[in-house]
């Protein structure tokens, strides 16, 4: 066999071997075997010296051609193998994407905090700032200054927790409503005879047996606006605005005459039942309406007690429960879930 024949044979062999290289290590072995320093093709190059002088260039040229062809074939093959290997790696790297993610602990705001914030935001748009007043309150602020003297039948509207105080001292109680804050806010702002728009949130307490529908502690939010030309239609418009922003656009309200000692006229504000939309259901006692607030024009005596001259100033006030709206919205049937702090309940919000 001539050197030429041997070269062609190596070349054929190499091509065949390359075809059978399936993975990177095999490819590298192939490269070493043919194109490496001691590879078969490389060794052929060295054999050129054995040839007669005139054949050497021809042989050399052919060797180079073979080398180049094999180098190209190697690159092409390497690419094919790389693709195949990546494909394989991706295939074998598949996971069950339905498996649960690594657990992350998340915190939750209390439902009451969420509701309060929603209400703060709505009233902030209408220029109401939040004003806070104490939970443990003077009897005078909770009752007398709000036009509810001792033994007055209106006091029946609030079952009161009284604080033990030494005899002869002014009596203290746990506020039964957020209304005492009205007097505090008015007295603070009437010092400058400036108009007033505040909302007063807070815990209230009533001497009531604890059941699914009533709690001895609950949140209320009071609103109070005092100005030189505030009217009952402003109260109604404000309540309507609130109902639309809180319960949803297009929501209607209904205003009924009512009685509170510290407002005159007094009204109650209903909105269409959020469950039945006004058609009538068990939640709204088949009336189609749910009460959202007690309200009215601030009683002249109360304005006076707050430091505003009723001849010059008028105002409106409203008070609403905080738990009831979310109980209705989320169909919560037991108010005890709120301050019993069952996390299985609270974590849903």
């Amino acid at each position: 066999m001539t050197l030429f024949d041997a070269l062609e044979q190596v070349y054929n062999e190499a091509q065949a071997a390359l075809e059978s290289a399936m993975v990177s290590p095999e490819l590298e072995t192939w490269y070493a075997a043919y194109l490496g320093r001691k590879g078969a093709v490389t060794l052929q190059t060295r054999a050129v010296g054995q040839l007669p002088k005139e054949e050497r260039p021809i042989f050399g040229q052919r060797v180079n051609e073979v080398k180049q062809a094999l180098e190209d074939a190697y690159v092409a093959r390497a690419e094919v193998i790389k693709q195949a290997e990546m494909l394989h790696a991706l295939e074998s790297g598949a996971i069950d994407i339905t498996l649960p993610g690594r657990p992350v602990t998340q915190g939750h705001l209390h439902l009451t905090t969420r509701t309060l914030r929603q209400i703060y935001d709505i009233f902030a748009m209408m220029g109401f700032e939040v004003f806070e007043a104490p939970d443990v309150e003077l009897e005078a602020y909770n009752f007398d200054l709000l036009n509810i003297p001792d033994y007055h039948p209106a006091r029946d509207m609030w079952d009161t927790f009284w604080v033990q105080t030494p005899p002869g001292e002014p009596r203290l109680l746990l506020r039964t409503h957020t209304s005492p804050g009205q007097i505090r806010a008015m007295r603070e702002r009437s010092a400058n005879q400036e108009p007033l728009r505040v909302i007063l949130p807070g815990k209230c307490y009533r001497y009531e047996q604890i059941t699914a529908r009533s709690e001895h502690q609950f949140y209320q939010l009071e609103g109070l606006a005092v100005g030189r030309g505030i009217t009952l239609t402003d109260l109604i418009g404000t309540m309507h605005q609130f109902a639309e922003l809180f319960y949803g656009a297009g929501r209607k309200i209904r205003v009924r005459s009512s009685y509170f000692p510290f407002t005159e006229p007094s009204v109650e504000v209903d909105t269409q039942c959020i469950l039945c939309g006004g058609k009538g259901c068990g939640v709204c006692k088949y009336t189609g309406w749910l009460e959202i607030a007690g309200a009215g024009m601030v009683h002249p005596v109360v304005l006076q007690n707050g430091g505003y001259d009723p001849a010059e100033w008028t105002g409106f006030a409203f008070g609403m429960g905080i738990e009831r709206p979310s109980m209705m919205k989320y169909d919560v049937s037991d108010i005890r879930l709120y301050y019993g702090n069952d996390l299985r309940f609270l974590r849903q919000f």
Partner: peptide
């Protein structure tokens, strides 16, 4: 009848605004 009352919003300058 309160059902005949229009709905209006307070038409007065805002009180001095404060942060809480």
């Amino acid at each position: 009848g309160y059902d005949r009352f229009p709905h209006t919003l307070i038409d007065e300058p805002l009180p001095p605004l404060r942060h809480n």
